[in-house]
Every structure is written in C-alpha cells, then in structure tokens.
Amino acid sequence: MLNITHISKTFNPGTVNEKKAITDLSLHLAPGDFVTIIGSNGAGKSTLFNAVAGSFLTDSGSIVLDGQDVTFMPEFRRAKSIGRLFQDPMRGSAPGMTIEENLALAAGSGGWFSHMGQKDRKRFWDRLALLDMGLEDRMKQPVGLLSGGQRQALTLLMATMNPPKLLLLDEHTAALDPGTAEKVLKITREVVAEHRITTMMVTHNMNQALELGNRTLMMDGGNIVLDISGKEREDLTVRDLLEKFKANAGKALDNDRILLS
C-alpha cells in the first residue's frame, strides 16, 4: 500500500541552520495497517508526514502509494488519495461556511453548493448522526460556532467522506480535553475500521501507541528505531517499550510530555 524507500530530507543545507530531519528512512505499510508513531520533538514524525503528503520534495529516495510513484507529485494531487488531520482543530475546516457546505466541499457534491440534492443532505445527516454530537441538527450553522472537539470530529468525517487510500493523523486529539479526545479517538477507530483505511497516527501518549491499531513505530533522529507488531506488541507494556527504545536508540527517552502522559 505505502512503500517509502531510503528517503532523506535536510533543511537549509550548507548553512548554519542546516537540519537533517530525515535520514535514509524506509517504511512499508500493508493495506489496512493502522500504525501509531511516537517520538520526541525533532524525531522526524511530522517531517515524515509532510514528505508523504507532498508538503515538500525529499532530497532522495522514493514514495509509492498504492502502486503509484508519488515522489514528485504535488501536494494538491496527493490530497485526492491522502486524508490528513492536524493537532489544531481549526485547520481542517472553513469556519465561515456551514457544516453542510464543508461536507459538500469534502464530498465533491456536484461541484457547487447549489447542486446539492436531498440525497446529498441525507447522506451528510446520516454521517453526522454517527458522531453522536447533535451536529446533524445544526447543518445550516457556520462551523466557526463549533467547539474544538466538534470541529475535529467534523474534520475527520470530511477527510473520510470519500475514503482515502491513506489517512494521516498528526496528534489530532492533543489539543482537546481528555473527555472530548477519547470521543474523537472512538470515532477514529470506528471510521478507520468501517472503511479499512490504511492509517498512520502520531501520538504523544504511549498507552494509545500500544492500544490503537496493529503496529507501533518509535522515531529518533530522523529515522525509525523501533517497529513492533503482532504478538510482541500485544504483550508489551509501556515500561517494555521504553526499554526497547533505549536499547535501539542508545539513549533513554527524555521527552517529559510523552513520559508524563
């Protein structure tokens, strides 16, 4: 499904601000994989997502999505196959447009809002009802009136309205209160399972990293230092994960945000 082969990325090369963000990284995801990714700030997690999404071109290597080489494909073209949610709930929707209009934009219903029919509106109502947030009865309201959690849930719905080949979740619950975050995670599980969407999720919560999906990666210094799945992952505790990271990375994990979570 996703084949990343020996990609590297250095920002500001040849200057005092040179930063090697990713170094010779390779990764393969099978169809339906749900991979959780954890690592300290600067480990390369968001850079990896940006490389896959096409926010920049890598310096070397290749990225193949569902058999198509997207290495040099611009971001707007990759967006047809890749859904993405960010940590900031405000980034994924248009606040001045209604809930209905945002969903129509995501679904590509007729190209223009005036072409929305009753069938489209019924589809949007049904999908919103699954969120159990009462948004199905507020379809004519501007998205800017919603809470952060409601907007993030709506953005998740928008990103999967036409199920993408790959879903990138970049700490998409980190800015939410614990109760709302748990609800959005529940919706995430259900949506991903319903459509069997191949998913990559960055998280700072080590328990989530082991409980969600079927595979856990840990990153450090722009590369993957740990890749665990199957029976080994099922029996792993957070303490075990920290020990494995220390053995593979040659140092202990020292990110307070991750350790305190």
Rank of each mutant, 00 (worst) to 15 (best):
D132W: 15
G39T: 09
L85T: 01
M133G: 05
K45I: 09
D235K: 15
A104R: 11
I82T: 12
Q68M: 07
V16R: 15
F76W: 11
F49Y: 10
A94E: 14
L241W: 08
I38P: 09
V143N: 00
V202E: 02
N162K: 10
S109D: 12
W125F: 12
D24H: 14
I82D: 00
L185R: 00
G39C: 05
L27G: 06
E243F: 06
L259W: 07
L103T: 05
E18M: 03
S8C: 04
L130S: 12
E190Y: 10
S26R: 04
K9W: 05
M161F: 14
V64A: 09
M1W: 12
A43F: 02
S81P: 15
T71W: 05
R189A: 02
G54Q: 00
Q150M: 02
L128V: 05
G44R: 11
I7M: 07
D170R: 03
F34Y: 11
L2G: 08
I224K: 06
D240K: 10
D69E: 06
T199K: 08
V64E: 12
S147K: 13
V70F: 02
M206H: 12
A53S: 05
E232K: 09
K251A: 13
M206F: 15
R91E: 01
L146P: 02
T23Q: 15
D254T: 14
R123K: 14
D177F: 14
M206K: 00
A79C: 08
G213V: 06
R196C: 13
M218R: 02
S40K: 07
D177E: 05
G92R: 00
D59C: 09
T155R: 01
I37E: 07
A209T: 07
L260R: 12
T160I: 08
R189H: 14
G44D: 11
L242M: 00
P163N: 04
N12M: 11
T5C: 10
D254N: 11
